[in-house]
């Protein structure tokens, strides 16, 4: 290949990389580049084929396993490199990076914790994905990945279903058994909320098991309290992962908790605010200031930054 052709392919690959990012906006520049020479479109199509080839390669279960060895398997020597790199970077970046530790005792217990405001995707050996919202901690045994403990926070589980070896999420003494594919779990204190997007989940608490189907949302306020069943749009389950929160008659105290996971700092519902209710959608992508500025008028409150917290106050309340 001539040097010119090599350069052209490189430019085409850069356009593929750029255009695959959801926030890409340079469509007119891209158009102009394509129009500049008929060879550009052909190069772009070739780069797309390469990209599809790479995608197919990575979709094989072996790919997950191979790359995972580098990252999370305790014995792999190269794991240290990732870890050291991550540590150094964490120090240089203001936003805390997820903590991945291997317990010195016990089996290969993997603990993953996200800082508030941080999302992280954990890919398991079989290709199942667990997407962690901010302020969340999970742990699992690297040798037995079909059971995971959610210590606190919120996670969206996209599980490759295996009827002979169902995936289980433990929240305290409660077992959530995957009988399908995609479900979201929020745990804080003793409260628990489970939403199902696809497939089915079996909730095994103290009482009779409850079968949850797409659109079912199970809520429990305390460890041994009664469970309530409500309905939600299955597509909205786990939508925090796309930067959108849906609320259906939620108290502002609940809204504050969800905003906190997205915003990276505690969000408090001030006097007289926590009991108010909200139904609607909040976009939580972008900087926390923007998120709060957008949310406040929708929630009908004032959201003030006191340096440590975001505080929601009644709109007419005088500042203290």
């Amino acid at each position: 290949m001539t040097e010119e052709a090599t350069d052209l392919m490189d430019t085409a690959r850069l356009w593929v990389v750029r255009a695959s990012e959801p926030t890409f906006t340079l469509w007119d520049d891209f158009t102009a580049w394509l129009e500049a020479d008929p060879a550009h479109l052909a190069a772009y199509e070739t780069a797309l084929e390469e990209d599809a080839w790479t995608g197919a390669l990575l979709a094989q279960p072996e790919a997950r396993a191979l790359f995972r060895q580098d990252d999370e398997a305790p014995a792999a020597p190269s794991r240290r490199r990732w870890w050291a790199g991550g540590g150094a970077l964490a120090a240089s970046v203001a936003a805390a990076v997820a903590l991945l530790t291997l317990h010195p005792f016990g089996a290969n217990l993997v603990q993953i914790e996200t800082a508030p405001g941080e999302h992280r995707t954990v890919v398991l050996a079989d290709g199942s994905r667990v997407i962690l919202n901010g302020g969340t901690r999970i742990s699992y045994d690297a040798d037995g990945e079909r059971e995971m403990t959610l210590a606190h926070g919120e996670a969206l589980f996209e599980i490759r279903h295996d009827a002979s070896d169902p995936f289980v999420v433990m929240v305290d003494d409660t077992r959530l058994v995957d009988a399908g594919t995609v479900f979201n779990v929020v745990s804080g204190g003793d409260a628990l909320e489970v939403g199902v997007a696809e497939g089915a989940v079996i909730y095994q608490g103290a009482d009779e098991p409850v079968h949850l189907h797409p659109g079912d949302v199970l809520k429990r306020d305390s460890a041994h309290g009664p469970v309530r069943l409500t309905r939600a749009d299955p597509q909205s389950v786990g939508s925090w992962n796309e930067g959108v929160l849906h609320f259906d008659n939620a108290t502002l105290a609940e809204v504050a908790e969800d905003l906190e996971r997205a915003a990276g700092r505690p969000v408090r519902a001030g006097a007289g605010v926590g009991g108010l209710r909200y139904t609607g959608t909040l976009a939580v992508d972008g900087p926390a200031e923007t998120v709060m500025a957008r949310a406040a008028p929708l929630l009908g409150v004032t959201i003030r930054d006191d340096g440590e917290h975001w505080e929601m106050t009644l709109r007419n309340a005088s500042p203290r």
């Binding site: 790479t54 990575l58 790359f67 990076v97 995707t121």
Partner: peptide, 19 residues
């Protein structure tokens, strides 16, 4: 590459995480 292609993290998020 791993973050963006294998874990499906967006480029902007990967950039922020890595600094």
């Amino acid at each position: 590459f791993r973050r963006c292609r294998l874990e499906g993290v967006s480029q902007i998020v990967a950039a922020r995480d890595i600094g």
